[in-house]
Design a protein around this nucleic acid. Structure first.
Lengths: 331, 331
DNA sequence: CGCGATTCCTACTACGTATTACTAAGACGT
DNA sequence: ACGTCTTAGTAATACGTAGTAGGAATCGCG
C-alpha cells in the first residue's frame, strides 16, 4: 500500500511534465484537449487529489474559515448547515471553534484566532467578548453574526425585530392595551433588539407596559416573573423573547388559573418543534435558519473578497399565528 | 505591515538557527533553558505562529478531522461543542461537512471525504448512506456515531436504549399493562434501538402492546397515530421515541378528552427545553450531549492512534420523571 | 593529560504544489 | 525563404517547516 500519489506521479503516468498536471488542475488555458484528457485519465487512475497543504503553502492562502459556535449550545442545526454549504460553494472549508466560557480567556482565544493566519475569515454565531476587534490589523476578514456592524445595523437579520412590531400591532388590533416583555440575555444583540423594539412600540402606540422582566433565557425564570405579577393585571399580552420563555410564561399563567389566550395572550420566538403541540400552541416567529446561515456566510465571503455586501434578505423571519393569541376576554 | 513571520525571522532575531526554533516549538529536548527562552521571547515579539500548512506538508499529517452534521439539523448544540473541545485537547482541528440529501450523491461525497487524505478521521452525527465503508482502504480512521460498530453495539450511547427499559419497568410497577410505541425514523439507529428495546421488553414482561406506530420524527404524525386509536384502549402508556412525538401524542390525547396522565401516561426522549414547561410536563430522558460528543470524539481519536477504545460511559442518559407519567386511573 | 561520551547547536534537505521564465514548433504574412 | 507571432508545453524555483547528519565545545574519568 504505497504512498499518496502526487502530481509528479500523474505526470509520469501521463507522459507530461508536472507543470502540465498543475495547469490542468488549476484550469489554466493553453493546454490542448488531448493532453488535458490524458492527464485527467491518469489522475483518475491513480485517484490523485491535490495536496491542499502544499497548495496552501504555495498560494499563501488557506481557503479555510472558522465558525465560532455559541457556548450554551443555542440550536445550531440548519444555521451551520446553510453556512457550510455556502462556504463550500465559494471554495472554502469551515472549521468549528468554540470559546472558553471565561470571558478574558475567550478574548485571548479570539485574538489568537484572528492572528493565527490560519483562517481567511471568522464567522461567529456567539456573542464575543468586548475586546474582540482591536488587534485586527493584518488580521483576516471578520464578521460576527450576532454583533452589530459599523452602521449599527444588526447583521444577518438575527437581530431583526420587525416581526415583534408586527405581533404587537396585531395584538393591539385585537384590543390589547397592556403588555409585558420577557427579555432574553442582554449579551445577545437579538435580545437587545427585541427589547428595544418592544419599548419603542409601546411608546409609539401609547400602550401600557407592565414592565420588562427576564434577562436570561431561562424558562424557569420566566415562570417566576409571571407568578410575581399582580392579580389585577389582566387582561395582558406577554411578548416573550423566546419560545422557552413563552412556554414558561404560559405554564405559570395557567397554574395561576388564568386562561391562555382568554386572559393572557403570549407570543414567543424561534418556532421550536414543541411550540406547535403546546397547549395552547404558541404564536411565534419562525426563522429560515438555513438561509440565515447561508446569508451570513455569503456576507463573510464578500467581505473577504472585497466585494460589496450582499443585500440583506428580508423574508427570513415570519410570524406564525397560533392559539396562544386571541382578543382579550372582557372581565 | 509586512509578511507573516517565519521561523527564520525568529531565528535571526534570537541569534540562533532555524532548526533551533523548530526544536523549541516541537518540544524536542537538548535545548538549554537560556536558548529556549531567547527563542520564545523573539517569537513573542514577532508574534510568530508556526505555519500549519508547511508543518503539515513536512509531517505528512493534517491534524484535521471531519464531522458530518445531520441534514435535518437534529439539534447539534453541545454535541458538537463537546466533540470540538475534546479534539482540540488531542491536537486536532475539526472541520464541518454536510452531505447532500440525495442518497447516491451523498455516498460519493463520503467516499471523497474518506479518500481525500485531508482528514485523519471522520465522525458522523448523521446516518450515512449504505455503501459508506467500502472503499476505506488506506483511508483515514473512521467512526460513525449513529451507526453500529462491528460487534453490533451502538456506538456512543446514542443508541443506548436502556432508559427505555427503565421507564417501562417503572410504568409496569405503577400498574400499567397496555403499551404503545411511537417510533422514530428507521434510518436512525437510535430509533431502531428504542423500538427493539420496546418490543423486547413487551415480550419479556408479558405486556400487551397496542402496536408500534410512527416511523419518522414528525409530531403531527404522532398526533394522527393517537387520533386513530380505538376508544377502548384506555388506560394506556405511550412510549415515544422523542419529546416531539410525545408532545404530539399528549396533545392528541387531551383533545380526545383523555386525561394525561390520568388515562394516558406518556414518555419522551431528549429533554428538549420546552418539555419541562409542557402541560403536563413530559417525562423524558436527558442526555449529556456535551459528554456524548466528547466521548465519541475520544473514541475516534483512540481509533486513529491505534489505542484501544475508551470504555463506554454509562451515565450519559438519565430518566427525568415528570407529570406525564402516573398510575393508570381505574375506569 | 588523553580520549570517549555528552550536550547543544547548525547546515542542509525534502515535502508537493503553483507559477514564472523559457523553448520548440508550427502558422502566417510578405 | 525569412522573420514574427501564437500555441503548447517544460524546467526551475520558492513557499516554511521538521528532522537528519554532523560538528564544536564541554565534561567525566582514569
Amino acid at each position: 500500500m504505497g504512498k499518496r500519489p502526487t502530481s509528479h506521479d500523474v505526470a509520469r503516468l501521463a507522459g507530461v511534465s508536472q507543470s502540465t498536471v498543475s495547469f490542468v488542475f488549476t484550469g489554466r488555458e493553453g493546454i490542448s484537449t488531448p493532453t488535458r484528457e490524458k492527464v485527467l485519465r491518469a489522475a483518475a487512475e491513480l485517484s490523485y487529489r491535490p495536496n491542499l497543504a502544499a497548495r496552501s503553502m504555495r498560494t499563501q492562502r488557506t481557503g479555510r474559515l472558522a465558525v465560532v459556535i455559541p457556548f450554551p449550545g443555542l440550536n445550531l442545526g440548519s444555521l451551520l448547515e446553510g453556512a457550510v454549504t455556502t462556504a463550500r460553494e465559494a471554495g472554502y472549508t469551515v472549521e468549528v471553534v468554540n470559546l472558553s466560557d471565561e470571558s478574558d480567556e475567550a478574548a485571548r482565544e479570539v485574538d489568537t484566532l484572528l492572528g493565527s493566519f490560519e483562517y481567511e475569515g471568522v464567522l461567529s454565531f456567539s456573542p464575543l467578548p468586548k475586546p474582540g476587534l482591536p488587534s485586527a490589523e493584518s488580521a483576516p476578514a471578520f464578521l460576527a453574526l450576532t454583533e452589530f456592524d459599523e452602521e449599527m445595523h444588526a447583521i444577518g437579520a438575527f437581530s431583526d425585530a420587525r416581526p415583534l412590531v408586527e405581533m404587537m400591532e396585531h395584538l393591539v388590533g385585537l384590543g390589547h392595551r397592556r403588555f409585558l416583555h420577557i427579555a432574553g440575555a442582554s449579551d445577545y444583540p437579538a435580545a437587545v433588539a427585541r427589547r428595544d423594539a418592544y419599548l419603542a412600540t409601546v411608546e409609539r402606540l401609547g400602550l401600557e407596559s407592565v414592565g420588562v422582566v427576564g434577562g436570561n433565557w431561562s424558562g424557569i425564570h420566566a415562570r417566576e416573573c409571571v407568578e410575581a405579577l399582580a392579580d389585577d393585571v389582566l387582561p395582558l399580552a406577554i411578548i416573550a423573547a423566546n419560545d422557552v420563555l413563552a412556554a414558561g410564561a404560559i405554564r405559570a399563567a395557567v397554574q395561576r388559573g388564568w386562561s391562555v389566550p382568554g386572559d393572557v395572550s403570549v407570543t414567543g420566538w424561534d418556532d421550536v418543534a414543541l411550540s406547535l403541540h403546546f397547549l395552547p400552541s404558541i404564536t411565534t416567529v419562525s426563522q429560515d435558519r438555513r438561509r440565515l446561515g447561508a446569508y451570513s456566510m455569503r456576507r463573510l465571503v464578500a467581505a473577504i473578497r472585497g466585494d460589496e455586501a450582499p443585500e440583506l434578505e428580508t423574508d427570513l423571519q415570519q410570524v406564525i399565528w397560533r392559539e396562544s393569541v386571541a382578543p382579550p376576554r372582557p372581565r
